[in-house]
Nucleic acid binder design. Sequence first.
DNA 1: TATTGTTATACTCTATAACTATA
DNA 2: TATAGTTATAGAGTATAACAATA
Lengths: 145, 145
Amino acid sequence: MPGLTAEDDLATVTTLRGAIMRLGRRLRHQRVDCSLSSTEMSVLATLVRGGPATPSELARNEHMRPPSMTRILTMLTDKQLVRREPDPRDGRQMVVTATDTATEILTESRRQRDAFLAELAGELTEQEWAAIRAAAPALERLAHL
Amino acid sequence: MPGLTAEDDLATVTTLRGAIMRLGRRLRHQRVDCSLSSTEMSVLATLVRGGPATPSELARNEHMRPPSMTRILTMLTDKQLVRREPDPRDGRQMVVTATDTATEILTESRRQRDAFLAELAGELTEQEWAAIRAAAPALERLAHL
DNA sequence: TATTGTTATACTCTATAACTATA
DNA sequence: TATAGTTATAGAGTATAACAATA
């Protein structure tokens, strides 16, 4: 679909952008545990989803500088949410791993956001929800392009 | 639609949340003018969309404390993006208004985000885009519930 | 006395520069 | 010498507490 120039399509794009940004902001504010900063949560999510990683990789992923990531990892280590171990293959590197506690917190966080969204969705009509359900796979693919 | 307990619906909610948060994050990073902070942009957007407002109203809207908003407004005033004038009705209050320059910046910012989203959408199939187009009004309503 | 906005001050998060250890 | 990680220090952004002006 390499066009998207029709008046109608452009209007859809604008509507979609507005809805996504507003919903995204509201979901972001649904914090499960306010003792963790937004970046700390994001780092944990990366580790839980993608498995162990080095501090440099995590810094790149968060668009942060290595020293800032060091500080984040120190705090997460103190809270027993990650482990830092030396890489046996390369003595310069460290390997960061999420603990079971971190996984549980992430799961709970997702659950809470789902509950918030489900409560909103409960206010929609059958037809509206059916349209969203039909579009969900396409939205997921759009997000990962 | 006061149910939303079916297995199928819960899966849709999870998919939808993931897609929205990911797309929201990517759209947020599409910055038009890096000389304005995220909060400054948000305040301008509120003023341009909703018209003049008092500092307290803006602080509540951004989930910020009044002193922090004072600082934001001072910087925006210095940059000639807002005007602060005393409320003729209540001598304690101020009325903050966005300037034409601010409106232009916001318009350009939206245009750029729309272009980014349209480029992504161009990679979808006809069927996928049709599904999203059909769901757009429902998503908009969901975002404003 | 309550409310609006501001000033003064402190804390959190991130960046840059400099240092240590390993490749 | 180049790279990974850390330490030291500085700069944004926001919060709390205290204050001035008006209702």
